[in-house]
């Protein structure tokens, strides 16, 4: 992001939020719940990955599993779930517990992977994610195995059921907006700056006296919290949770969303989520109904090959091509920023 766009980031974000808040009045309920709402809840999970990748250079494939940790924690605790594992804990208590569980899981993933970089980190987080998936699939006592836990309907908000399209949509939108603001705020704090320094030159940051491992683990904790919020909403959206929710396919979907949107700014996660959801919903009409995954794979491959920094990167290049070039203005900053905003692979080769 060049300094020019930074000035517009806040007004643009607020305008986008306003559009998203007013849109349900104009579009059918199906679009509100199953396209926008769904894109937002999965986008939150994808944003936790985008946050780690953009500002820390950590491509973590454990984020859907961490989201599922929160979802499972809530499903285990709340009343009305089928089967009832513990049950009877009100949502007001279950949701914070779920967020706590996801944050703890995020910290744990960060701790386990703390000494690994780049592609190794990707492998380790992926195996942790798939490992937990296999574990919940095999374990009946706590997670009801393959079947998962159904009928997690969500709390009542202001006396309205969560299943109501608008209650669900506006809760998801408000959560996403808050977490988005949290990320943008956090990366300007000393913690966020240290994190970005860590991405660009870990040795130098350590030499300056920062506790690099601690910053890394904390970043994973923050990402865990974000993913957890997304995971709880995903669970309410699906009215339950099963191992498939956190399997390899789901993990890859989150990565696809983040990459399609672009690892470079948190908004990319939501752009990617909307594109993915549109595909998911309408691919059946475009191509063979059963071969949806082939289409997703081809589109993903095409984007990775053509524009590794996703739609955001495409937009940036398009703008650079169209805009008249300012003469000799802070070129050094612009190029170094452009380099670091590219795919994280450039900065953290093993």
């Amino acid at each position: 992001m060049t300094p020019g766009t930074a000035r517009w980031a806040l007004p643009a974000s607020l305008a986008l939020l306003a559009v998203l808040a007013l849109l349900p009045l104009a579009i059918p309920a199906f679009w509100t719940a199953n396209i926008l709402g769904r894109a937002i809840v999965y986008g939150i999970v994808a944003m936790s990955l985008t946050f780690l990748a953009t500002y820390g250079g950590f491509v973590s494939l454990a984020q859907m599993m961490i989201a599922g940790t929160a979802g499972y924690a809530v499903a285990i605790l709340v009343p009305g779930a089928v089967p009832s594992i513990l049950g009877g804990v009100p949502y007001a208590l279950a949701i914070p517990t779920g967020l706590l569980a996801a944050t703890a899981m995020g910290l744990l993933v960060g701790l386990i992977s703390v000494r690994t970089q780049g592609i190794y980190l990707l492998m380790i987080t992926l195996s942790l994610g798939v490992g937990v998936h296999l574990f919940v699939q095999a374990n009946i006592a706590w997670f009801n195995g393959y079947e998962g836990i159904r009928n997690v309907v969500g709390p009542e908000i202001l006396g309205l059921p969560f299943r109501d399209t608008f209650v669900f949509y506006y809760t998801a939108l408000a959560t996403a907006a808050l977490l988005y603001a949290l990320v943008l705020y956090l990366v300007r704090t000393p913690f966020g700056l240290a994190l970005q320094a860590l991405r660009d030159n870990p040795r130098r940051v350590s030499a300056l006296g920062y506790d690099a491992p601690l910053h890394r683990i904390a970043a994973f904790g923050v990402a865990g919290f974000i993913a957890g919020a997304g995971g709880i909403l995903v669970t309410f959206y699906n009215i339950g949770i099963s191992p498939g929710t956190i399997g390899l396919g789901a993990t890859v979907n989150i990565l696809v969303m983040s990459v399609i949107g672009g690892l470079g700014h948190p908004v990319g996660a939501f752009i990617g989520a909307v594109i993915f959801t549109l595909f998911d919903t309408f691919a059946a009409d475009l191509y063979d109904r059963d071969r949806f995954n082939t289409l997703v794979g081809v589109v993903f491959l095409a984007i990775v090959l053509a524009s590794p920094d996703g739609v955001l990167g495409m937009a940036r290049r398009l703008r650079d091509a169209l805009a008249p070039r300012p003469q000799g203005r802070a070129d050094g900053i612009a190029t170094s920023r452009a380099a670091s905003a590219g795919p994280p692979a450039s900065g953290n080769g093993a």
Binding site: V59, G118, I119, L122, V252, L255, V259, D290, R291, F292, N293, T294, V296, G297, V298, F300, L301, V304, L305, P308, P343, P344, A345, S346, G349, A350
Partner: peptide
Amino acid sequence: QGQELRQALVTIGISIIVADQLLA
């Protein structure tokens, strides 16, 4: 060659397509 993350992403794309085509 050398763009490790991009290669990993490409192979993920391939694995999605292969799994689906084998299913077909």
